[in-house]
């Protein structure tokens, strides 16, 4: 599997979906996007696509072509798309050329906000609100990334092939956030929120533990043994999930 292709999938499908909750939970983003009525469509030659729609103070993310878009951004290759995410290239606008002001000013302000939350520093993580949002976005990004790698990364595919059908739920105690990875007949799906009867659970004692764990700052075995993280149920599912999760940084930081 082409490394650029996997990375482009991660960029378009695991990172962009965070705009939904960024708009909902971050007051600065909510204020920035409250009057927007834009649908931005991203497509890469060869088929990968995604869109984010801002409408009526809400952001919706999708991985298909939207019914209508106000802006359409095209990439010649997965590498071209990745270069844009690394700030080293710009997309080809196929539609919405008149919205150049929005693309040059407003949208970058939004992406900077997401970058702010996805690239934590030790200092920023001392802020409770920042910690909560960074953890939420990290969990969501990780779960979507696992879904992508399970289907595309050759090593992760081996781990995924050992996963029985079921639902793995991650939850930060006591009140969330929570997310689910659903495995069914070789297909993977990510949902936000809790489920009553998961097949396996990973319960983090608090936000700090969850954040440290997702960002690889503490080892899972010690955390589980000490009770900071409670794992329960079909542990082979969690074992495979961890193996895949550990491969995410090979593609995106």
């Amino acid at each position: 599997m082409n490394r650029d292709l996997i990375k482009a999938n991660l960029n378009l499908h695991a990172l962009l979906q965070n705009f939904e909750e960024l708009t909902y939970f971050d007051t600065q983003t909510a204020s920035l996007t409250k009057d927007w009525n834009e649908t931005i469509y991203f497509s890469i030659m060869g088929g990968i696509q995604a869109y984010i729609e801002f409408k009526e103070m809400k952001c919706t993310f999708g991985i298909s072509k939207p019914k209508r878009s106000s802006i359409s951004l095209f990439f010649l290759s997965p590498g071209h798309c990745n270069a844009m995410f690394d700030g080293k290239s710009i997309p080809i606008p196929l539609k919405g050329i008149t919205r150049i002001g929005f693309l040059m000013t407003d949208f970058p302000n939004l992406t900077k906000r997401l970058e702010y939350y996805l690239k934590p520093t030790d200092e920023l993580l001392k802020n409770e609100e920042y910690l909560a949002l960074n953890t939420r976005f990290s969990i969501n990004t990780a779960m979507h990334a696992i879904k992508i790698l399970a289907l595309m990364d050759p090593v992760s595919k081996h781990s995924a092939s050992r996963m029985k059908d079921g639902v793995i739920m991650l939850k930060v105690l006591p009140d969330g956030p929570a997310a689910q990875l659903i495995i069914s007949h070789g297909e993977f799906k990510v949902l936000k929120g809790e489920i009553e009867k998961p097949t396996a659970v990973i319960l983090f004692k608090d936000l700090k533990i969850a954040n440290d764990m997702i960002n690889g700052k503490i080892d899972a075995f010690s955390a589980a043994a000490s009770g900071d993280v409670l794992i329960k149920g079909q542990l082979p599912l969690i074992d495979a999930l961890n193996l895949i999760l550990d491969r995410v940084p090979l593609y995106i930081s």
Binding site: F221, S222, A224, A225, K232
Partner: peptide, 21 residues
């Protein structure tokens, strides 16, 4: 846990014991 990776590693690791506590 401060001086040994995993605290207790390998097949004697408490991690798969549910709950380890």
């Amino acid at each position: 846990a401060k001086v040994i990776p995993c605290g207790i590693y390998g097949h004697l690791s408490p991690a798969p014991l549910v709950p380890p506590t």
